[in-house]
């Protein structure tokens, strides 16, 4: 055997001794300790269950002992914790495709860098006579642009391919509702009910929520539920504007149900309570016009036409109604 071969054998032997020292000799003899060193303490920063003095780590250590005593292997014990906390609980997570790439990427980058340097150096040496200087500049620019594009594509691909832990059939993350407008009628009703009797919430604040709910019912044609909410508002120290809104809507519901006289009275009260309620004024016009009482509707229509809060697209209809009322 040549001297060079002896040297190689000596190097290989040294490597084996190092590996044995790092992997085998360092492994704890106590199986519970081995598992505790492989699991992170969930409330600590990077500490293992074995190293942590926290209460939860002590409980987890005890659980490791219980599982091992029950016949679990070290691997099964690790899997027991992984099934509850996810793979993040393992200080050395099992290698997936990404993990393997993570270890090999530096080597690939280094190899790629060497090749690129060698490739780029060769033309530079020869370009003195063979290549115009702009050519290599364009090549470098092309490499740069392509690299940016590829990074972008790969970034999206990497995000898309993010693996999820086994046994985790999550269909997607939900967004918690941030305001009452986005919740269902039932949720809004329960929210209002939960605030009743709360000293930190004024009756007027509650009325605001009730009117919002009542409006939903009103727009959906659920007049029974709407009337219940409007009635509650009227009985709960409403502001003039709140009372007027409730009376105006109740008046319209009465009119739709054929109670014209009661509707007219409610709408009149709505305007007496708050003269700026254009909606109640409009409802009253419709009630009067339906009863051929155009002359009584004229001042109401003129007031509506002068009201800046009335939507512009309603103006033509109001003008037509005014002409009809005067006739």
């Amino acid at each position: 055997m040549t001297a060079r071969r002896w040297q190689w054998l000596a190097l290989a032997g040294l490597a084996l001794v190092l590996v044995w020292g790092l992997v085998v000799a360092d492994a704890p003899a106590d199986p519970a300790l081995a598992v505790a060193e492989a699991i992170s303490c969930p409330v600590c920063d990077g500490e293992s269950v074995a190293a942590s003095q926290s209460e939860i780590a002590e409980s987890m250590y005890a659980q490791i002992g219980t599982l091992l005593d029950a016949g679990y292997t070290e691997r099964e014990t690790l899997e027991w914790f992984e099934a509850r906390y996810g793979p993040e609980i393992l200080l050395e997570p099992p290698l997936d495709v990404g993990g393997i790439l993570l270890w090999t990427l530096p080597l690939l980058i280094a190899a790629g860098g060497v090749i690129v340097i060698l490739r780029l150096r060769r033309p530079v040496a020869a370009e003195v006579t063979a290549e115009p200087p702009t050519r290599s500049g364009r090549s470098l620019l092309g490499i740069g642009i392509s690299a940016v594009v590829l990074v972008g594509v790969a970034f999206a691909l990497g995000s898309f391919l993010e693996p999820r832990a086994d046994g985790s059939p999550i269909t997607g993350q939900f967004d918690a509702p941030t305001d009452l407008e986005s919740v269902s009628d039932e949720t809004l009703a329960l929210t209002i009910a939960s605030f009743e009797g709360d000293p930190d919430v004024s009756p007027q604040q509650l009325n605001g929520m009730r009117l919002a709910l009542a409006e939903r019912y009103f727009e959906a044609g659920d007049y029974r539920s709407a009337t219940e909410e409007f009635t509650t508002v009227l009985e709960s120290e409403p502001t003039p504007a709140q009372a007027s809104e409730a009376l105006g809507r109740v008046g319209w519901i009465l009119y739709v149900n054929g109670e014209s006289a009661a509707a007219e009275e409610a709408l009149g009260q709505a305007l007496d309570t708050f003269d700026g309620n254009g909606e109640a004024r409009y409802f009253l016009v419709l009630v009067l016009m339906e009863q051929d009482r155009g002359s009584e509707a004229v001042p109401l229509l003129e007031a509506l036409l002068d009201d800046p809060s009335v939507p512009a697209d309603l103006q033509p209809d109001l003008l037509a109604m005014l002409e009809a009322a005067k006739a």
């Binding site: 690299a147 990074v151 594509v153 691909l157 993010e162 999820r164």
Partner: peptide
């Protein structure tokens, strides 16, 4: 070679923003 290296680098860059405070 450049393409492979860049794609791999992008793959890991894409994983970085998925680190969450509390794991799934």
């Amino acid at each position: 070679v450049i393409g492979i290296v860049v794609v791999l680098a992008g793959f890991f860059a894409g994983r970085l923003d998925l680190i969450e405070t509390v794991p799934d």
